[in-house]
């Protein structure tokens, strides 16, 4: 396991601290200008300690990549726009399959090529695919410099890697590439 660099630890600690503020309900009192100093100090210590141990699992490259406002807005647009559309389509489709009397499923594991290089982008695409009902990423593999996902698909329309990839990834890959590359 690679050792974490100092910026990686800092960025992990900042994210931990933001979640500490949200969960302990300090945001409102910070806005009023009367924060509880004890809670803030405890949060800073805890998030620094957590980051020290966990940063090497999360951050391997460019720790402050999302601090760019354009990229962050693209991420928000993806989460609440493009992804919600795909999620709705897939949810309705799988619910229809589960409730229809003949149970029209055609399951199988297909191999799908991925054209993303960054680690974060690959993780995000794999998670997006798993989160849409009807497809689960089982494993990822690298062959001859190209990355592939093995995806369990509830309705195998095509066994050909390119066509299956087109059907599963849809617009997701384009959006993820726009955010991370």
């Amino acid at each position: 396991m690679k050792k974490a660099s100092f910026p990686a630890i800092v960025s992990t600690a900042i994210v931990c601290f933001i979640f500490w503020l949200l969960i302990t309900g300090q945001v409102a009192s910070l806005l009023r200008g009367e924060p509880s100093v004890q809670v803030l100090i405890a949060g800073a210590i805890v998030s620094a300690a957590a980051a020290l141990f966990s940063a090497r699992f999360f951050i391997h490259e460019s720790p402050f990549y999302l601090c760019n406002p354009v990229r962050f807005l693209k991420l928000i647009a993806y989460c609440f726009g493009a992804f919600v559309v795909e999620l709705t389509k897939a949810n309705v489709d799988v619910a229809r399959r589960a409730l229809s009397p003949s149970l029209p499923v055609k399951p199988g594991i297909v191999k799908v090529p991925v054209g993303l290089k960054s680690e974060y982008a690959q993780a995000m695409l794999a998670d997006s695919i798993t989160l849409t009902p009807g497809t689960i990423t089982v494993d990822t593999v690298e062959e001859d410099g190209k990355d592939y996902y093995y995806i369990h698909w509830i309705d195998v329309a095509s066994e050909d890697p390119e066509e299956a990839g087109e059907a599963i990834k849809g617009t997701l890959e384009k959006w993820v590439r726009r955010i991370w590359e």
Partner: peptide
Amino acid sequence: MTRKSVCDKYGED
């Protein structure tokens, strides 16, 4: 996997 499965690229590989 169920017998209805049409393909299993993971097992083959």
